[in-house]
Nucleic acid binder design. Structure first.
Lengths: 340, 340
DNA sequence: CATAATAATGACTTCGAATGCAATGTTAAA
DNA sequence: TTTAACATTGCATTCGAAGTCATTATTATG
């Protein structure tokens, strides 16, 4: 029973009557080995069930071939899609994803500590809680970092972002074309950079049309918080004619709250727009007007940027932006004149 | 600039005037070191920014501390929830998740090969494509495997499952109590074991009420395939009064198709039930009657089972079942008498 | 104060693959 | 046939932490 012992390159070498170096060379592409030895080694390796030990390889190569991916559990984005696409891209570069999830900001230090011990080749951060300080820790250890959908003002960290400003401008312009003047913004959580970017993006776009002092209610990106936001706003304010939401889930919450609890028709009485282009936004019951993020391009860009930095450590950080795509559903209608 | 060189235990030892062994011992809990050396080492370690190298540790410990998690991209289940919960449980045992995604069954061999080289401590498989043969490969290398929501008939592999039969019985019993006699089953893909389990579960439960030969349409677990299923069935068959769907996404697709395209009211004209209890099933527009899986218990059970097998390699495989919880929404109504 | 018992320490080896270097073997060219 | 050029090969070392073992320092006991 060879069951309890792993098969090493030495075992194969002994059985095949060659040196351990020879075995190693057979399993390393692009090294010169004679056809005879290669065959001998491959045959015995197969017979013994030998597989190169990735751990030992990591140690000698000074590179783990692993990418740390950090996700907040309370993620705004299309978590499953993004993660799975990222993983696919990373696999294309023959690297693996080591996954870290984050509940609270306070855990962050522990997670960074962990990541550093694992000698990962790079880090992709899909999380709002990520101060520049934290990134510096990775920089000190020469570990490149790419932020996904989050940018640092001084561009000292590479990032791949959807252009929130441009996306919100498209949405706002559309609403203004439909003669809306009374708005409500349902923003994301205070500590999320994406939320801030989308909020200021909306405000800037509205201001361009002379619309100012728009009320803001904060949610936490969840469906329930969208419902709650509309509900609490209507308690002590006039109903808006259009609601701009920081993401699709909250927008859907707003639509359901409006229809079921407030007896408002969407879009006839209330127009609602979201952001992200999650699959549920296209469902017949909602047909949400939203801006979809080009997730597959963005994940590819993120991984390409990261791999580039891994291979050229002295390259400067790079920020790449992607425009969103306006998806016109059926959640926006022309404001009724009596509301003007 | 210590930037280009990693700090090793030797560096710390030299600086602190102790041996490398001493440094190692300070970072390994439960080993005897004098307070004096500990302090000296910790101080210089901190100054130099030393962190134990997890890779070297893995090699000498003969254990990577990593768990491979395999997910199908086309997953039926609550992918984000399950993955994030799994990760949390695994982190509690001080291990990490190495992520592998699977597109097609053909990739499987390559992925298994990969996993074996990484010397993972165990495997959690969240995927339909996973033949017993594949599991045997892990068994040969003494790597324990736990299947999530998939069981092997002979119980030779550990698994954690939601009890599909029982869940479907609850749903069918509910529908029968509402006097439904004409059914449609929207099943999952042919090659998914969960799909098969749910289909036969539904058929068994219906048979107990003497209902036989229920038409079956297959979908791929997506919203669109739910729409498509209802649409194509109504082309050449009498409308059913109740539709039993293999998962919530398809059930929601059926509801939207019925309401928007077929001018059927749900639940008045058509009752629909799903399975999984995804968050969208509770949204006001749907209020789907479904069976929710106890995801947090199941993920905990999966990890506990796996860790137990890692620590006691000679334990027999263990299968654990969890009952689902019936969630009564508003998608089931009493069958109208003219339909009887 | 001597001796036993225990704690702390360092030298050295281990894990498994990769590689620089030197020593072969092979083929080509003169 | 001789020499040069090149392809294979194995030896020995490396990566960084952990643990064995023997040795030394410290404390406890008679």
């Amino acid at each position: 029973m060879s069951k309890n012992k792993r098969v090493t390159s030495y075992d194969v070498a002994r059985e095949a009557g060659v040196s351990q170096s020879a075995v190693s060379r057979v399993f390393r592409p692009g090294v010169s080995v004679s056809e005879k030895t290669r065959e001998k080694v491959l045959k015995t390796a197969d017979r013994l069930g030998y597989r190169p030990n990735a751990i030992a390889r990591m140690l000698i190569n000074q590179s783990s071939g692993m990418i740390a991916v950090i996700v907040s559990s309370r993620a705004n984005l299309n978590f499953p899609d993004v993660l799975s696409l990222l993983n696919k891209q990373i696999a294309l570069h023959n690297k693996r994803v080591l996954l870290f999830t984050l509940d609270e900001a306070e855990q962050l230090d522990g997670v960074i500590e962990q990541i550093l011990t694992y000698q990962v080749d790079g880090v992709v951060a899909l999380t709002a809680h990520f101060e520049v300080e934290s990134v510096k820790q990775f920089a000190q250890h020469n570990i490149p970092v790419v932020l996904y959908n989050r940018e640092v003002p001084d561009h000292s960290v590479s990032s791949v972002c959807c252009n929130h400003d441009q996306g919100l401008k498209m949405l706002v312009d559309l609403l203004v074309r439909h003669h809306h003047r009374r708005y409500l913004i349902v923003a994301g959580p205070q500590d999320s950079d994406v939320a801030t970017a989308r909020l200021t993006g909306a405000q800037k776009a509205l201001l361009q049309h002379g619309i100012d002092n728009v009320p803001v209610v904060r949610g936490d990106y969840s469906y329930e918080s969208g419902q709650q936001a509309l509900h609490s706003h209507l308690q002590n304010a006039m109903a808006p004619t259009a609601v701009i939401c920081a993401n699709d889930a909250m927008a859907i919450g707003v639509i359901d709250e409006a229809r079921e609890k407030q007896q408002l028709r969407v879009p006839e009485d209330l127009s609602v727009v979201g952001f992200d282009g999650i699959s549920a936004s296209a469902w017949y019951s909602y047909r949400l007007t939203t801006v979809s993020q080009p997730t597959s391009y963005m994940t590819k860009a993120a991984v390409d940027t990261l791999v580039n930095l891994i291979e050229n450590p002295h390259n400067p950080p790079e920020s790449r932006y992607w425009p969103g795509t306006l998806i016109e559903g059926n959640s926006v209608a022309t404001a009724r004149s009596e509301d003007e």
